[in-house]
Design a protein around this nucleic acid. Sequence first.
DNA 1: ACCTTTCATAAGGAAATAGTTATATATAGT
DNA 2: ACTATATATAACTATTTCCTTATGAAAGGT
Lengths: 115, 115
Amino acid sequence: MQTKERTFEEAATLFKLMGDKTRLKMLAILYKDECCVCELVEIFQMSQPSISQHLRKLKNAHVVNERRRGQWIYYSLNREHPFYEQLLDLLNTLPDTQPLLNDLQVAGKRVVCCD
Amino acid sequence: MQTKERTFEEAATLFKLMGDKTRLKMLAILYKDECCVCELVEIFQMSQPSISQHLRKLKNAHVVNERRRGQWIYYSLNREHPFYEQLLDLLNTLPDTQPLLNDLQVAGKRVVCCD
DNA sequence: ACCTTTCATAAGGAAATAGTTATATATAGT
DNA sequence: ACTATATATAACTATTTCCTTATGAAAGGT
């Protein structure tokens, strides 16, 4: 799975981001589909600021993108990230998070927004 | 690179260990060759307790093995770790650490020990 | 204009982290 | 037995991390 090389600094920064259970699961969820903040709040059952702060860290590292759609701000994996492919490989080794999104849908908590 | 699945907890624990620059570099070094503590102290120019504490964390997570040879205790990657192969893939994307070991050799600081 | 909803940011606190120095333990050599 | 070397552990400190609550800003609906 040889990809581009990088410094220990860069790599450690990325691993540190993935070293938090919440953020890691968050990435696994965004791998399935982009999500807005309130959906993640619902999934994680954590305070909204906490979710926002995790997202900000991921955004600052260019691991995720944000885009506003009306009231909602959607986050998604950044496909332009230099180690995006490698990230996908890692996320593939994690439990499937699709059920979480399905549960959200069933509970009517999935935000539907057509822009 | 599909390997075994694991919980977010397990994965996050491993990534957290790799999220520290010193430990990550340490793993990259052990990927090249087993090392004793004093060699790592020499390479990192850090206090011996600091090195030992990092190694203990890696050992507690079964990422590395230790084995005593006389006065020295050698650490090496644990090939039995459930995600050893994946770890190798990741370490392969990092800068080569062989020069560090060569420098150590040249400086006469490489511990030679035949057991 | 007003109110509601969504999200971000600020401020603060508890816990974890990574380093230090000091000390203890284990092995080797004399 | 004594000394030297290698390593581990304990105790401490400074910094970082992750959460909380409180507040502010942006957009939408009436």
